[in-house]
Simulated assay, not measured.
Amino acid sequence: MRILGPYNFDSVLDRLSLDPLHVIDRNKRSVKVPLIIKDQPLVAEVTAIGTTDEPEFRVDEENNEIIEKLTHIFQWKQSLTEVDDHFQMTDLQQLFKEHRGTPLVLDFDPYNCLLKSIIHQQLNLSFAHTLTERFVKTFGFEVGGVYFYPQPETVANLNIVDLRELQFSGRKAEYVIGIAQAIVDGKLDLQSLYDKSDEEVMNELIKLRGVGPWTVQNLLIFGLGRPNLFPAADIGLQNALKKLYELDRKPTLDEIDVYKKDWEPYLSFASLYLWRSIEEVG
């Protein structure tokens, strides 16, 4: 399938490669995507066969539901020209030139995104990915060499000791199990979040134990694809701003509020490109 450029799939693979659970082939320019379709797991391989300016993709498993999911995950309908034009008169102009055509690609499932955000809380990125990988490979399942996150029913039946053995803190273990139990009990319906405003999602999820504003903002960006979120408390973003503005310290939240005014209504893209500016990719 063809989409409007610019769209830099090699940049997508750069970001996806940060997570050891992703199955990527750099030479083929492909990634294998675990999907749950009608309660059945399947793996769809997405391969780039075009360029940044004339992007085109081949999908090995094609039906309408699969294409719809992949279109949402890879944000194939989002005009990056419109986004890029917006930032040409801002302080992020150079970043948008350096990383031109980098799309806001989502986690493969909002449930995965929520669990990953909780696991990643207050951890450095390297260990956060290691801990998530242990969790998924211990309690999840594999299809065609691709790992799926353990489903809510599985996680809800775990106990804290199970996760402590992987080096989870006791509190984080409680949070992850509690989220799964809320889903199983019908108290949390992640699919319903698509139809709610950012504020409504925040108000609903913040009531869950272990879920703070940073976690909800990450879910809104990388789980639901909302375009106008800036997690100002994120250490990575603070470090990126420190680098951008050549500060001798991290910026204050008040300073960040001033910086970000010109970036609306695309704050999520500002966040993405700032993260890109400090990421070490292979």
Rank of each mutant, 00 (worst) to 15 (best):
V31W: 07
V31T: 07
K32I: 12
K32Q: 11
P34N: 06
P34G: 10
L35N: 06
L35T: 14
K38Q: 15
D39G: 12
D39K: 13
P41V: 14
P41D: 07
L42W: 05
V43I: 14
A44T: 05
E45H: 04
E45I: 11
V46G: 06
V46A: 03
A48I: 04
G50C: 07
T51Q: 01
T52W: 02
D53L: 15
P55Y: 00
E56M: 09
E56C: 13
E56A: 15
F57E: 03
R58P: 08
V59H: 07
D60S: 05
E62A: 05
E62P: 08
E62Q: 11
N64Y: 09
N64H: 10
E65R: 04
E65T: 11
E65Q: 11
L70D: 04
L70P: 00
T71L: 00
H72E: 14
H72I: 10
H72T: 14
I73S: 02
F74A: 07
F74T: 02
F74M: 09
Q75F: 05
W76M: 14
K77D: 08
K77V: 03
Q78V: 15
S79R: 11
T81Q: 14
E82V: 08
E82P: 00
V83H: 04
V83S: 07
D85I: 14
D85A: 08
H86F: 05
H86S: 07
H86V: 03
F87T: 12
F87A: 09
F87Q: 06
Q88T: 12
Q88N: 14
D91A: 09
L92Q: 03
L92I: 06
Q93S: 13
Q93G: 13
Q93T: 14
Q93K: 14
Q94P: 11
Q94A: 11
F96L: 03
